[in-house]
């Protein structure tokens, strides 16, 4: 019985999570946040892996950090929104 209850609650959790993600995907703040977080992280990783030695290319790091920060802010705004 406990096993069934656990499965139900697990399924219900998964269903809720799925519904939340689907709802959030229609929230533009979530999409913009995701986009800039992704691009920001890519720039940071690219800086660390490829262009760290060249001082003039620090713009990749700063831009990456700024984009990530902006992306995270948009994601947070979306997640704390009740809708």
């Amino acid at each position: 019985m406990a096993r069934y209850i656990g499965t139900d609650s697990n399924n219900s959790f998964k269903l809720n999570l799925f519904l939340i993600i689907m709802t959030k995907l229609l929230d533009l703040r979530f999409l913009i946040g995701l986009f800039f977080l992704l691009i920001g992280l890519m720039l940071i990783i690219y800086f660390l892996v490829e262009s760290r030695q060249i001082t003039s290319e620090k713009i990749n790091l700063w831009s990456g950090l700024f984009f990530s920060g902006f992306g995270l802010t948009m994601l947070l705004l979306s997640l704390i929104s009740r809708k």
């Binding site: 690219y46 800086f47 262009s51 060249i54 290319e57 713009i59 990749n60 831009s63 984009f67």
Partner: peptide, 9 residues
């Protein structure tokens, strides 16, 4: 002025 990476942006 832009290096690769931010150039893509």
């Amino acid at each position: 002025l832009y290096p690769n990476g931010i150039l893509g942006v």
